[in-house]
Amino acid sequence: MLAFYYGDECITFERTNRVNSIQRVLIKVYPDCRVCAHAPSTASDAEVLEAVKKRARWIYQQLRNFREQLTHITPRQYISGESYYYLGKQYMLKVLEAPEAAPNVKLFRGKLEVTVQKRNPKKVQALIESWYKSRAKEIFAKRLDAVINQTLWVTEQPPLHLRTMKTQWGSCSPNGRLTLNPHLVKAPCECIDYVILHELCHIAEHNHSEQFYRLMKQVMPSWEKVKSRLDGMAASFLNGIQK
């Protein structure tokens, strides 16, 4: 871990090495307030520290924004009355106890209804998480079909996988396999499209180069606005907490 001061605050960050040939230091601030600097392996710690300090004001602002979000959210208890997102809309949870019925989750009349044989928060949690993954698998496949024609460099449908992640919406492997976070299904469709297009752009450009951002501008001219919207919802979506 490396650290520096911005005003009276000591900001620590983790250094990781970039696997490509790009010589820039990429700085990321995550919703859980971790700060990471992805740097070329040839760069010294002093060089990385100097690059990070140049972005100190931006890092501080990002940390303040995420901390502000975290002060307005509470851990879930998986009981009736809580609010849950799906495709950008909020649904109130309604837990139904039915000893003879099969466990089930469904959207019904503006509510997320969970049927259990006996009230148990862990069981409710498991059912909701399974439902999100099932819906994510279907929705992501549909959105991939809807946007893939915009990426002319993609010649065949890439394989799509799900993986729950704490700090990422998605990733793209060197061989073109897309991995998306099932929590992303809580976001509006335009945000899902943004993440999918972002990863499809990585099939052509495996780093965040100027060419990468030119491709993003081509396929989604308003991507920065959409990204900002998604970033604002990240804490509640990724950490399983509610406002």
Rank of each mutant, 00 (worst) to 15 (best):
M1W: 13
M1S: 13
A3H: 11
F4R: 12
F4Y: 15
Y5D: 14
Y5T: 15
Y5L: 15
Y6P: 09
G7S: 06
I11F: 05
T12L: 15
F13D: 13
E14H: 14
R15H: 12
R15L: 10
T16W: 14
N17R: 11
R18Y: 12
R18I: 11
V19H: 12
N20A: 13
N20I: 13
N20Y: 08
S21A: 15
Q23S: 15
R24L: 08
R24M: 10
L26D: 14
L26W: 11
L26F: 12
I27M: 10
V29P: 00
V29W: 04
C33R: 06
V35I: 14
A37W: 00
A37Q: 02
H38E: 14
T42S: 10
D45T: 05
E47H: 15
E47V: 10
V48F: 02
E50S: 09
V52T: 02
K53P: 03
R57F: 11
W58K: 08
R64G: 01
N65P: 03
F66Q: 01
F66H: 01
R67N: 09
Q69F: 06
H72T: 04
R76L: 05
Q77K: 05
I79L: 05
E82S: 01
E82G: 00
S83I: 08
Y86P: 00
K89N: 05
K89M: 07
V95M: 08
V95I: 10
V95R: 01
L96D: 10
E97R: 10
A101S: 08
A101H: 07
A101K: 12
P103G: 09
P103H: 05
N104E: 12
N104L: 07
L107G: 11
L107Q: 10
L107R: 12
R109F: 11
G110P: 06
K111V: 06
L112I: 09
E113T: 05
V114H: 13
Q117P: 08
K122D: 15
K123S: 12
Q125L: 12
A126W: 09
L127P: 04
L127Y: 03
S134T: 15
R135I: 13
K137S: 11
E138G: 04
I139E: 09
A141I: 08
R143S: 00
R143K: 07
V147E: 08
Q150K: 11
Q150N: 06
V154K: 00
V154H: 04
T155V: 13
E156M: 03
L162D: 04
R163E: 09
M165N: 13
T167L: 12
G170F: 02
S173F: 07
P174N: 08
R177Y: 11
L178E: 05
P182H: 00
V185I: 10
A187F: 05
P188E: 04
D193H: 07
Y194N: 02
V195Y: 02
I196R: 02
I196M: 07
L197C: 01
L197Q: 00
E199Q: 02
E199D: 03
C201I: 01
A204K: 11
E205I: 01
H208M: 05
Y213N: 01
R214D: 03
L215A: 02
K217E: 00
P221N: 03
S222D: 14
W223G: 00
V226K: 00
G232Q: 10
A234W: 11
S236N: 10
N239P: 02
N239F: 13
I241C: 12
K243I: 15
